[in-house]
Design a protein around this nucleic acid. Structure first.
Lengths: 126, 126
DNA sequence: TTGATATATTCCCCATAAGGAATATAGTTT
DNA sequence: AAACTATATTCCTTATGGGGAATATATCAA
């Protein structure tokens, strides 16, 4: 029942919002922080939880820790992420998170990896 | 984020197994008990939890309490139950639960509502 | 080296929930 | 009525996890 693990990761609002944003591609913690409007500790802890359960992978890019969904996913995970994507499309909260993130990407300060014009160092692998 | 409620219901193994069996149709507690091989208290409590969160409905048929998935389901719930159905198909535990239940239906004692030839009193609404 | 930035970790408190044993309730049968 | 069946509820203990404040670590910049 690896399936349980998936649901346990999905059953907290903050984690769900994090995963939803990650469906759009890899993100560093500060972006998640900005997108969700939640304190750093909170995000960090949930990311730890998600990593511990194999729901995200992390990679350091300079000073930033970039998180993303796992490269290889079980069928259960794939199916549920697809389902989440579908459900999230209509939800106010999820849409607002996405909007905030998008805005940040467009006009964000150059200090932030995804906002800065991509360099070799900051360009992220899909 | 009604979606969270759904995941919170799905994130326990016993509840997940209960819901999976209910995907096959309404069941009384004793059948769930037999299908899962778990103590009555445990099942009863999880059913209470599920009912409290709108994931199941209950109806009394004589001495039996028959549980089923809600007649009207939100899109989120529908999508996730579909997903569960899909994921469960390959899982050993789920298949074994189903097998036990099926066996019980075929050769079960007449004391049990689903096994007994259906009467007006025991026939269940879809 | 010093300072700043990004993130993680620790400590503490609190809420929720899981599990079992024992007991209660409701309906059925005799 | 009494006995039995199916199910729920209460009481208790324990584990897990969530949240925040403060602190630690690591990397980068000057």
């Amino acid at each position: 029942m690896r399936l349980i693990r998936v649901y346990q990761c999905l059953c907290d609002p903050t984690r769900l919002r994090i995963l939803h944003l990650l469906l759009g591609g890899p993100l560093c913690v500060c972006h998640l922080q900005a997108g969700l409007g939640e304190p750093q500790v909170k995000i960090s802890k949930h990311l730890f939880y998600l990593k511990k359960h194999g729901m995200v992978q992390m990679r350091k890019v300079g000073n930033w820790h970039v998180y993303r969904l796992p490269a290889r996913q079980t069928e259960e995970l794939k199916a549920n992420l697809r389902c989440l994507q579908e459900c999230a499309a209509k939800d106010r909260q999820f849409r607002s998170d996405m909007a905030k993130l998008k805005k940040l990407r467009q006009c964000g300060s150059a200090r932030q990896p995804m906002c800065a014009p991509a360099t070799e160092k900051t360009r992220l692998v899909a």
